[in-house]
Simulated scan of single mutants.
Amino acid sequence: MVSPGLSTVPAVVTVAGLVAADGVRAAVDALLDDFLKRKVTTAVAKGLPEEVPCVLKDFLRDGGKRIRPALCVLGWQAGGGGALKGAVVQVAASLEMFHAFALIHDDLMDHSDIRRGKPSVHRRLAARHHEAGRTREEADMLGAAGALLVGDVALAWAGELLHSAGLPARRLVAALARTDRMRTEVMYGQYMDLLATGRPNPCTTKSLKIARYKTAGYTIEHPMLLGAELAGADQSLVGALTAYGRAAGEAFQLRDDLLGVFGRPDVTGKPNLDDLREGKQTLLLSLAYRMADPAQLRVLRRYAGDPLLDEHGAARLREVLRSSGAQTAVEQQVETRSRQAVEALQRVSLPLHVAEQLRNFAQALSHRPA
């Protein structure tokens, strides 16, 4: 057992390294693939539209880091759960299915055409309908409505995976309470994001609240706590993992905001214009509005939230984000939260490999390229 400290963290680590350990990704991917193959077979047998499970299966196969399942397993091991078990893998897989739901709906609401370097689900469905003879307008409408329903199915199947994992009744009740809270927070976060989009302003409190509810909680905190509670973790461990998860979750989202503006699409797998075109109420934009001089403010007001924003306008915005100090300020916030996450682990003793992976993960958040 070890109480980890920041000084022992390797200088260069990757987020991908988190999911490589213990075969988590392979186990989760195999379970999801088998689950969705059975859903395709059932759809064919019942004469239902097989493209629903097929497009979901393709979407899950196309990539993703599997961070949430990996953190769920680490939480389980932190709580003394030991090696992988079938039930834990299935619970972890339910988190990835829920993540698919969230991404599909998020892309639809944000009018994002690309996810993981490939067409988003509503664009895939629109292409199918257009190739089948629908007009472009009809195909786009069917693609959007169909993606809404595919996302709903993913949410329902996330619940099915959790319910059918074979958990003891007491553990299932706790897992349902945790996932209910997680899902509710995501919905509120998404709703707050919708209300704020297109109206960026200097209010950093609102920006951080959106980040916490929409992404931070369901990315790190709740997956870890779900695994830990399945293992019967005590309150001291739950408290330490909560503090770690909140700090690391915010670091993850703030870094994501930076990548959404300054990242390379060929690396991140998504455009770097969407957040600027939408006028997302991120901490990055809020700080820019707060720190900008009059000339910089004119640029922000002219271009941020412009649905027709081109590369020229985006370049001017990025320059303001840099020169105003907003980019540096957010990078410092990411570093601070990453450090706070590691410090939270010092409150408890953890299995050596769990402590090491959580330390490395928190460090990777500051530098991840995608």
Score class of each variant (00 low, 15 high):
R171F: 09
D180S: 15
G260Q: 07
N272H: 11
P369K: 11
F101D: 00
D106V: 07
V153T: 13
D22I: 08
A126V: 11
V2D: 03
D29A: 10
Q327A: 13
V186R: 00
M291N: 07
R302L: 12
H367L: 10
L276Q: 04
D110M: 07
C72T: 07
H312F: 13
G198L: 08
S366A: 10
F98K: 02
K280W: 05
R181A: 14
G64L: 13
T215C: 08
L208W: 04
V52M: 12
R322D: 11
R264C: 12
L6W: 15
R170V: 14
I210M: 09
D22Q: 13
D256G: 10
A169R: 14
Y289T: 06
E160D: 15
V73F: 02
G79Q: 02
D110I: 08
E319M: 13
L352N: 13
K206E: 14
A292D: 05
V173K: 11
K206N: 08
R359A: 12
P223G: 01
K214L: 09
L241Y: 00
R264L: 15
N272W: 06
E51S: 10
H312G: 15
W157I: 05
R277W: 00
R339T: 15
R255P: 13
H111F: 11
A154L: 05
G75A: 07
E331S: 10
V342G: 01
L254H: 04
Y303S: 14
S366W: 04
W157H: 04
P49G: 13
F35K: 01
F361R: 09
A154C: 09
L321Y: 00
R25T: 10
R316T: 04
A196T: 02
Y303T: 06
V261T: 03
R212Y: 01
L18G: 04
